[in-house]
Design a protein around this nucleic acid. Structure first.
Lengths: 138, 138
DNA sequence: GGCTAAAGTTGACTCGTTCCAGAAAAAGTG
DNA sequence: CACTTTTTCTGGAACGAGTCAACTTTAGCC
């Protein structure tokens, strides 16, 4: 149950949180608007702020992951723990998952690090999704 | 001369464009604010809008590259043509360059592409820059 | 030098997001 | 069950980054 997940991370179990967690668990990369809409269809009502709060809490707890593709509103996905990456459509912002291409993460070991203490390597593939290709091609 | 670069890309040579191109050529990863400030110190005056327009034109022409780290304002760098990546400080947004770790770009050939037509692979390393480490550590 | 399209100016405005206050409602604890 | 603390609510205001639109200026070409 998702309630256990919440408790395990020291978060209180509330309806909005369960709803959002449920929505994210269903898969996909949703923006705040979409999450809010879906949450409202499950509960009688949820405030926009509550959704932002919940997403913030889940992200901090590591139960959700925030994806912020340049030029598009932020999206969230259930964090599966694996180190996967994303394909983003330049035109509509659609997102797809991509497993790390190589076994060993070439990612986390850059040649130079300028003294930075690194904690994550993010890979984003940019292109056009099938739907947007059709529109552009015609 | 930078005027030639502009002309070569079909762009008219104007004072704001030369100034911005000059500033970028000096190196670094600057945000619009900083570019505007530097441009104003070279010219009598430049509108914020003009700076955005110029940066847009330069980016479209391939003379500049836009970097947009999640949670930080966009930054621009002179495009050197090589396929390098960036280290970004989570705290202050400072950016450093990193050459592609591997010779063959493992980057551009993800295992799955969901039908997307890809044109770029972006790698961002997240961490704390030396300065911010000190503040956090203490 | 004069013409025309491209580039710049100005100011209002959008968008996604955050913050704020105070009141109400739940959740966990003893 | 009563109590304390967290979370949520309503609603509004504010934010920074960036965009739009109408008008003026300027670069490049004859």
């Amino acid at each position: 149950m998702h309630s256990d997940q919440l408790r395990a991370h020291g978060l209180r179990v509330t309806k909005p949180r369960l709803a959002v967690l449920d929505i994210l668990a269903a898969g996909g990369h949703l923006d705040v608007d979409e999450i809010t809409r879906q949450a409202r269809s499950r509960l009688d009502s949820v405030s926009t702020q509550a959704v932002y709060d919940v997403l913030g809490a889940l992200t901090r707890a590591g139960l959700a992951r925030r994806i912020e593709p340049a030029g598009h509103p932020a999206r969230f996905e259930a964090r599966t723990g694996d180190n996967h990456h994303h394909v983003v459509c330049r035109s509509c912002g659609a997102i797809g998952d991509v497993d790390c291409a190589v076994d060993y993460t070439p990612c986390l070991t850059p040649s130079q690090h300028h003294g930075f203490r690194l904690d994550e390597a993010e890979v984003t593939y940019w292109g056009l999704c099938p739907a947007c290709q059709e529109i552009t091609d015609d």
